[in-house]
């Protein structure tokens, strides 16, 4: 596999219980502490609830649970990464992803190599190796389809 040779991209590594996610900074509006969320009746388990953010309602999802992992109560170090709207969604449809602890700043540069995609990686556009760890860059179009089926 060839190394990445484009200009460096600033990103945040978002810890999850499974595959850590690498989110380009340009996709993120803010990282906030996890407050009490408003539960949505009859929501799928991966929709944790609704966050009040800058006087807007922002649904918060668990990537781990979206891909079929077990869910557990978020700890005190949990954060919410508020993303700008996914492709095809309205300008006010921000969405939050649960981070099990504080996300870490990363730079994607020529020293970072793509790695093979595992069949278990779902809604992931590409996988990268960081210090022997594999991280996944979400496929935002695929996420939009699964979060908003038929819409």
């Amino acid at each position: 596999m060839s190394a990445i040779t484009r200009d460096p991209v600033h990103a945040l590594e978002v810890p999850t219980d499974n595959l850590p996610l690498l989110l380009p900074s340009a996709c993120m509006a803010e990282v906030v502490a996890l407050p009490r969320l408003a539960g949505v009746p009859h929501a799928p388990s991966w929709l944790l609830g609704v966050l009040g953010w800058r006087l807007r309602p922002v649904p918060v999802i668990s990537y781990d649970m979206l891909v079929g992992g077990a869910g557990h109560a978020p700890g005190p170090r949990a954060r919410v990464v508020v993303l700008y709207p996914l492709p095809g969604r309205k300008a006010w449809e921000f969405v939050g992803i649960l981070s099990v602890s504080e996300p870490q700043s990363r730079i994607i540069d020529s020293g970072v190599a793509p790695t093979a995609m595992d069949a278990s990686f779902r809604y992931i556009a590409a996988a990268l190796k960081f210090d022997e760890r594999t991280v996944g860059i979400p496929d935002f179009a695929a996420l939009a389809k699964v979060l908003y089926p038929g819409r």
């Binding site: 408003a38 949505v40 009746p41 799928p44 929709l47 609704v50 009040g52 309602p57 649904p59 819409r151």
Partner: peptide, 30 residues
């Protein structure tokens, strides 16, 4: 504020929630 909950709608008429009232420092009211 408008809100479209992610995930499939629980009724044939759509989602039972379509908005939220968000106040600073308080849990949103759906």
């Amino acid at each position: 504020e408008p809100l479209i909950p992610p995930g499939p709608a629980p009724t044939s008429a759509g989602h039972v929630i379509n908005g939220a009232w968000v106040r600073a420092g308080q849990t949103p009211v759906l």
